[in-house]
Design a protein around this nucleic acid. Structure first.
Lengths: 335, 335
DNA sequence: CTGTTAGCGCTTTCAA
DNA sequence: TTGAAAGCGCTAACAG
């Protein structure tokens, strides 16, 4: 391994000067700089980032905690963070939490131990109060797609209430009045908020959500299948279904297929997220889209701003709206 | 930030001892250890990994280069690496290459600069000879899902020839004789190998692959759609189609749908990979499965072995077989 | 079993 | 514009 010392000797300068041509070229004499650059090139010198980080007490890196890597939902957000950070010369490093509170805690600390300048945490499982304590202690950490009232300026997220309301409004605009819904696990605030917004949306049209038309799913396909079967079995009629994510919508469609219920002719189905399963289903799924890349990018930038002490909240967008992506599973039933 | 020095003072021992209770507890007197542990706990001390890495010249970390994060194909492999490494107390850190040779190079070096003990590289775009040079220089780097004859023991990959052959054999076993195929871009060795194996498989049954029944795709859905349209337009009859990945199979199915060609009644379709789009298509896609997690895990372990100087190649599995996952798009046409 | 003593490779005052 | 010197926080011989 070639070190800065060897470069400095070869170039006949001090290590400080070599360091300068790397990090602050303009401050170094042009002739010296040329010479050093030449040696660097010739020796194939590459700075040891670990040493640099230690000495400079900065890693120019933002850490990201996500549930797992094998889901495009997190992949999109991660890509968003990475792209945004690349533009400002920062690196991204991600760690997965296996979707457990312990995993979230560990990944978060692990990133901090690596001296990340900031960390973007997608924490579905940690409790509000623990999150609050951690955020207080880590002034450069931000929450991804989770909202904590006590630290609103540290949260970048989709407005799930708006998303839920939008779902209701859209379905109503297509003439539906009897609408069922399959929610995510109600312990997640996403599910709570989407249901809340959905209920609001229905209320605007003077529709009261019938408790029999609400089924709790698990955010996975199997749960969607089961929940749909349950809804159908209660015999309450409905012409449209809103699912809290696309996976469950896929499950619901599967149940319909098995029971020979035609989608969308007999039942319209609306998903949420717009991850790529949506466009592969038959018929293609109409869904409520989350701008995952944008959300990730905003979170990355926020963490970066906090880390570099820039004007915090300088008009940075932190709450995002969902939007409808019309495909083929919702049909207009206006008489 | 609380450092090892503060802990040592509080505990009335040297920093070396604190270091020992963290990294080599058994070598420290039980009473001292208790005391130090108590102080660590009380002060909330967390070792600075950057400092440890620098001092120990080891990061206990393996880097991974992948194309991008927004695709489960890479996500699965990454998860495999991570899981395997976790078991041996190593960390994983991933960087994306944007699927360009320059990106692959940069990500690779960047990981090395961070002093990763080894790196697992998914490099589709770098040329064989450059790869060979790099592998020679980096004795702890391994290739993921790519085969380089000159460095066979540094490659962990799916046997694409076997996969292609398996596809042919399977289709033939279902009574198909007129078989078309949509390949990946032929500049990728995966496509070459799958086609080669496929041809071999057909040859075993004395079938010669008709050039008109081969179309080159792009590994994406759009390319699959176009390639299928092309195949259909040549008017050569075929009863089955083998696609080099599931995305293109989805595209081909879309083209069939548009042209009112029933799958699998009129044309059977076989995919490759078994990423989750496969199970969401209608009908569900029969496909050739790659054990992505296992491949990732093996690559991680290989890099780890090389990094820790363990018995290289101690019976470590480095080439994996594909297998058929039967779902609903291939039908038996035996008379 | 524990402390002392050198660093790891780089950055960063402070002077010159 | 450049160099000398003092670390960053931790580990790793080497003694004892």
């Amino acid at each position: 391994m070639v070190t800065i010392l060897q470069v400095s000797r070869q170039a006949g300068v001090s290590t400080a000067t070599v360091s300068r041509v790397i990090n602050n070229p303009e401050v170094v004499g042009v002739r010296t700089r040329e010479r050093v650059l030449e040696v660097i090139e010739r020796l194939g010198y590459r700075p040891n980032l670990v040493a640099r980080d230690l000495a400079s007490r900065s890693s120019r890196t933002i850490g990201v905690v996500i549930n797992n890597f094998a889901s495009v939902y997190y992949g999109f957000m991660l890509e968003g963070v990475e792209m945004a950070l690349r533009n400002v010369g920062y690196k991204t490093i991600a760690e997965s939490s296996q979707a457990t509170s312990e995993g979230e805690r560990q990944a978060w600390f692990s990133l901090l131990d690596r001296q990340c300048d900031g960390v973007v945490v997608h924490a579905d499982n940690l409790e509000d109060d623990e999150l609050a304590v951690l955020l207080d202690r880590q002034p450069t950490s931000v929450l991804l797609n989770r909202y904590l009232k006590s630290h609103a300026d540290r949260c970048v997220y989709l407005d799930n209430v708006q998303g839920g309301r939008l779902a209701a409004e859209y379905l109503i605009s297509k003439g539906h009045h009897q609408i069922a819904t399959i929610t995510g696990p109600m312990k997640f605030y996403q599910a709570k908020d989407r249901l809340k917004g959905f209920t609001q949306g229905l209320a605007q049209a003077s529709i009261t959500l019938d408790a029999d038309l609400v089924a709790e799913g698990d955010f996975h396909e199997a749960g969607g299948e089961a929940a749909m079967a349950h809804l159908l079995d209660t015999q309450k009629p409905f012409t449209a279904l809103f699912c809290h994510n696309d996976e469950m919508a896929a499950g619901a469609m599967e149940t319909c297929r098995r029971r020979c219920i035609r989608v969308p002719e007999e039942i319209s189905i609306l998903g949420f997220d717009d991850v790529n399963v949506a466009s592969h289903l038959t018929p293609k799924l109409t869904t409520v889209r989350q701008p995952l890349r944008e959300i990730g990018a905003a979170a990355g930038i926020l963490a970066h701003s906090l880390a570099t002490g820039q004007v915090a909240n300088s008009g940075l967008k932190t709450v995002f709206d969902a939007e409808i992506v019309e495909r083929a599973t919702v049909v207009d039933v206006t008489p």
